[in-house]
Design a protein around this nucleic acid. Structure first.
Ligand SMILES: NC(=O)c1ccc[n+]([C@@H]2O[C@H](COP(=O)([O-])OP(=O)(O)OC[C@H]3O[C@@H](n4cnc5c(N)ncnc54)[C@H](O)[C@@H]3O)[C@@H](O)[C@H]2O)c1
Ligand SMILES: NC(=O)c1ccc[n+]([C@@H]2O[C@H](COP(=O)([O-])OP(=O)(O)OC[C@H]3O[C@@H](n4cnc5c(N)ncnc54)[C@H](O)[C@@H]3O)[C@@H](O)[C@H]2O)c1
Lengths: 215, 215
DNA sequence: TGAACTCTGTTAATTAATAAACAATTTTCT
DNA sequence: AGAAAATTGTTTATTAATTAACAGAGTTCA
């Protein structure tokens, strides 16, 4: 077990959700024990990296045996903070906002959607899966009154920063942003920018790289 | 200019779309010249990294002057392969598939949506922005007849790999996958897995890290 | 025009991330 | 029970990524 709790690198942190997903799959297959070597084979990281990653948070394995899948799954869930609920709201109830609202997996992992907000009168008052679309004018009041912690930004990119600023002023703790804009937040606020177009353009690059081999 | 065209690292490649986006913003603000130092200030990478990244592909700047924004934007567009069209299809016309189909930005960057496919008879025959939802039974024929290059997977995770296999067998070149499953593809096929839940769980981790400072 | 200044491209130095190695411990099997 | 095999946690080595440094080329402006 790591004694000195020094800062864990983002590279490690971003691998944790992948471990979590693969462990969940193992449990669903009723596999209750796994070695770093075998996990390496299915997840694609080296066994060494898996052991080192996990050891950033504690010694969850046992020499000669490996890891108990259920225990490790629970531990990583704790590390990721998936052991409690996060009251959340979506701002921008358009195509993407509605798609996310309709997606139950995030709710099941603790992200409870309490309301959606929009500026378009035609959308205000509608419900998506029991969650009402409210007038964005009520955003601050709702966040304060309901102790909302997470805001999911699905507004056009030109409104993304101002929406974030309103969320932060109202007391939000974290922002999940889908607008193609790098939202700036103060140090005590957590931001995760998604940027789907960057993923698509990477695909585009790789498509051409293959067509024009440079080696 | 880099003489030997050695392999560019994925770290660099994944930064290119960000350069592209910021340069587009600069052009919209009618800024036609920029130094690595100033770009560093607005994009958040070090000036040194910017110069080194760009130099993987050529000497686009000029000593004493900086970079011509329009020229650099065009060059990166070429590098990313955003100078031609990619005929694409979406498989899975549910919440996310429809949201992506309704999003015009990707089309504007060259990703032309030619059809959507679903297994649900209630959806088959409907149109999203002039694009028809077809029976997934016709997937292979459509891809071959229309020279489709890119498949966007929006089916449930349990159908993701088999959908990919069908796409590949039919001659697709690249796959953009939104299902929470790491799709395996042969070497000559490009895959970009999105994994929104990994992004959300990273946010969750960071929310808790802040609450339990470890330093 | 020319001196002072700017800024790139590129190499060198530093830091971070990944992989390998291995002692210590536990399991497995006879 | 005891030897052989397996597997972790952790240290060390290696590779990759980032940052710094700076010569040389080009710009700016009096
Ligand atoms: N749909 C996609 O597939 C997709 C993909 C990548 C990125 N995005 C990004 O996600 C965001 C949403 O995309 P979309 O396709 O859902 O767009 P959309 O136009 O369907 O929805 C945007 C919604 O935001 C609302 N809105 C506008 N200003 C607002 C404000 N100030 N406060 C509250 N609501 C406001 C609009 O009324 C609209 O309902 C955009 O930034 C887009 O660039 C979307
Ligand atoms: N909606 C989101 O916000 C979101 C977020 C993250 C990930 N995802 C992932 O994206 C995928 C789609 O999500 P969704 O919310 O749109 O789900 P959805 O259920 O709304 O849509 C899935 C669609 O796929 C169709 N389908 C099922 N099997 C098929 C097959 N074999 N061939 C063709 N079509 C088939 C279904 O009929 C349905 O219309 C899922 O894998 C989901 O996990 C969605």
């Amino acid at each position: 077990m790591q004694r000195t709790s020094q800062k864990v690198s983002m590279a490690v942190i971003r691998r944790l959700p992948k471990y979590y997903r693969y462990l969940e799959n193992l449990l669903n297959k009723e596999i209750y024990r796994i070695s770093s070597k075998e996990l390496s084979r299915i997840i694609g990281f080296t066994a060494s990296q898996i052991r080192q990653d996990l050891n950033c948070f504690g010694g969850f394995g046992q020499q000669g045996y490996g890891y108990n899948v259920e225990e490790l799954y629970k531990e990583i869930g704790k590390i990721l903070g998936l052991v409690r609920e996060y009251k959340s709201v979506i701002i921008g109830a358009g195509n993407l906002g509605q798609a996310i609202a309709n997606y139950s997996d995030f709710q099941r992992k603790g992200f409870k959607l309490k309301a959606m907000f929009d500026i378009n009168p035609k959308l205000i008052g509608l419900k998506i899966r029991d969650v009402e679309i409210l007038d964005v004018d009520n955003l601050e009041d709702f966040i304060k009154e309901n102790d909302i912690e997470v805001g999911i930004i699905c507004v056009p990119f030109s409104k993304a920063q101002e929406t974030a600023d309103r969320l932060i002023a109202a007391g939000i703790k974290g922002i999940w942003n889908f607008a193609p804009f790098d939202i700036k937040v103060p140090d005590n606020i957590v931001i995760e920018n998604v940027h789907l177009s960057e993923s698509l353009f990477t695909l585009s690059y790789l498509l051409n790289e293959y067509n024009n081999p440079e080696d």
